[in-house]
Structure formats: C-alpha cells, structure tokens
Amino acid sequence: MNDAPAIDPLPAADPLIDRYLAHVRVERRLAARTVDLYAIHLKTLCEKAAESGLPLARVQTAHVRRWMTQLHSAGREPRGIALVLSCWRSFYRWMGHERLVEANPVQDVRAPKAGRPLPKALAVDDAVRLAELHDANADPWAEARDRAIVELLYGCGLRVSELVGLDLVASKDARGWIDLDAGDAHVLGKGGKRRSVPVGSKAAEALRAWLAVRDDCAALPAARLRDPEGAVALFLGRNGNRFSAHSIWKQLKARSAKAGLNASVHPHMLRHSFASHVLQSSSDLRGVQELLGHANITTTQVYTRLDFQHLAKAYDAAHPRAQAKKDK
C-alpha cells in the first residue's frame, strides 16, 4: 500500500457526503486513512453524477455500470475498482437507512475479475536482519523507538493503524495497549473488532528498552498541554505527539536501506512476513487467521501460496533432479 493521497475539497453541492464521512468517522470509527480514501472515492461518484446531470439520490444501477466501465477503460485495476464500488455501496446502504433512496444502485454491481497477486514478504534472513539492526550512529531515543516498532510489526503481525493506536496503558478510551506482564498486545482492528496477540520475548525486550527512555522526549511536557494524545500514546515523534503511520513508513524505508535489504520495506510487508513465516513453521492456518484478525479464512489462505512458493524455491535449489534439469 502507498500513503494516502492528498484530498482535494469535495464539491460543496453535496452535504450528504460530509454527513456520511462524519458517520463512518464517528459512529463506525473507521481509521483516518480509510475515511480519506472514502472521501476520494465519493468525490469520484459526485463528479460522475454531475457529468450525467444527476443528484446522488437518483443514480441507478445502469449509471454505476457505465461509470465502472469508464474507470476500467481509463486504466483502473480491477482491485481498485472493487474498492471504489465497495465505498459507493456502503454510501448508498447508509442512504437507504436514512430513507433517502429506495434501493441501493450499487448492490449487484461487481468489479471485473482479476488474478490475485501474492503479498510481498521478506525472506526470513532479511526480516531477522532488519529486526536485529542497531544503528550506533542514530539518536538513541529514536533508535529505541524504531527497534520496538519493527519488533511489534514483524513479531505480532500488527497493521500500522493498530500499532499507531497503541496507548501506554489500558483505558476505556484506548484503541489498543500492551500488557507486558501478560505478554499480550490488545488492538482495535478493521471494523472495530478487538483482538489479542502474543508479544514475543524479543518484542517485549525492545519495548522495555523504549519505555525506559520514552519520557526523555524534550517536547513531551508541552505536547501534554497541547494534545492529550501525546501523553498516552505508546510511540511518539520528536514533537511529543503520537507517532503517525506516515512517519513509520519513512522510518522503515530508511531502516531497510541501512540493513542492506534490496526491498524497500513498508509496514504491511512486515505483517505479510509475519504471517508467511509463522505459517511456514507451524502450518496452522486457523491460528494465523486469528493472529491476523481475518474475518474469513480465504483471506489467510493466500499465505499458503507464499509457503508453496518458498518450498518450490527450496526444491529448485537443493533437489538433485531439479539441478539435473537446469544443467541440460
């Protein structure tokens, strides 16, 4: 995934969009990045409806099918079109609940089929090299934070939104927290679903090292007055505020280069690596599903393809018949 693109202002003629975005942000508690993407896709819907001279409440299934074809002809990938339709479908479902439309015009519209790409995961050696990296030239405070972040992303398979939502301690307002004594991370995943995942010894060690220096941030007292988030957040930036997903992307990219990795590592690649490596070691698909917080086992099954790919490479590298085939 890439960073969420910048959002242009939505057309002022449709306050319905603002109401819906407030609904998903406040009532459904969707992540800020997801709300930003919804805003982009709904802006597209507004533009398509305006081009056809239609108010949003009068859009029909035939219009949606035509706009989907236009997106496909313009080069939009099937997976991207599916995300757009999912957003539109959710919007019209909300309009139905508000009694603004009688039927959902997107309900039976499906995106073109596409081959399912394999998730990108690091080799085990590369993942360990990244996790064990210690940059002696870096600021010790930031180095302790960044090592703990890598250990949690790779050691627990957290999404970056789950990681940045972690607080120092449990509370009724906390999106997530770490219980080091119990060895558990409690996170708020997609769809507002909570789950607990074990925190391994290496991740716990890195977290304790970070917690020992966390409050040494010079900006923290001012940040506590300016923004309570900075007081309770587990991970901080130098400004004393909660560390952002965008900052984690940047730090991981720089850190992977320092570790000498060919891949430019991003947070979800570490989640993919976690899932692939646990599955290779345990073959426990249901267990990996629970650790990742997948609602459907088919989402987790993609990692079995990565596991098979790993075995195929090992076969090509080691089996005498595979070597004989190459020598011909």
Rank of each mutant, 00 (worst) to 15 (best):
Q70N: 05
L71Q: 13
H72V: 10
H72G: 08
A74R: 12
A74L: 10
G75S: 14
G75F: 09
G75H: 13
R76K: 14
R76W: 07
R76C: 13
E77S: 15
E77F: 03
E77T: 14
P78I: 10
P78M: 13
P78F: 02
P78H: 02
R79I: 10
R79G: 05
R79H: 05
R79S: 15
G80I: 08
G80C: 13
A82T: 01
L83V: 03
L83A: 10
L83D: 02
V84N: 02
L85F: 07
S86T: 12
S86L: 11
C87E: 01
C87R: 02
W88P: 00
W88I: 02
W88D: 00
R89Q: 02
S90V: 09
S90I: 07
F91V: 10
F91A: 09
F91S: 10
Y92H: 08
Y92C: 11
Y92K: 06
Y92I: 13
Y92G: 09
R93Y: 00
R93W: 00
W94T: 12
W94A: 09
W94F: 14
G96T: 05
G96K: 02
G96L: 08
G96E: 04
G96A: 05
H97T: 11
R99F: 11
R99Q: 15
R99M: 13
L100W: 02
L100C: 01
L100E: 01
E102M: 12
E102Y: 03
E102P: 01
E102L: 14
E102R: 11
A103N: 03
A103L: 08
A103E: 05
N104Y: 01
N104M: 13
P105T: 04
P105H: 00
V106S: 10
V106E: 07
V106M: 07
Q107S: 06
Q107G: 06
D108C: 09
D108Q: 08
D108K: 04
V109P: 15
V109W: 00
V109N: 08
V109K: 04
A111I: 04
A111N: 05
A111G: 09
A111D: 05
P112A: 13
P112K: 12
P112Q: 12
K113L: 13
K113Q: 12
A114E: 07
A114S: 15
A114I: 06
R116L: 11
P117D: 14
L118E: 09
P119D: 15
P119V: 14
K120Q: 14
K120T: 15
A121V: 11
A121F: 10
A121M: 11
A121L: 10
L122V: 11
L122Q: 04
V124W: 11
V124F: 14
V124I: 12
V124K: 10
D125F: 02
D125P: 09
D125V: 06
D125H: 02
D126R: 00
A127Y: 00
A127P: 04
A127M: 01
V128M: 04
V128K: 00
R129K: 02
R129G: 05
L130S: 08
A131H: 01
A131I: 00
A131T: 01
A131N: 01
A131C: 03
L133N: 01
L133Q: 03
H134T: 03
H134V: 06
H134G: 03
H134I: 06
D135L: 15
A136C: 09
A136H: 06
N137G: 06
A138I: 06
D139R: 05
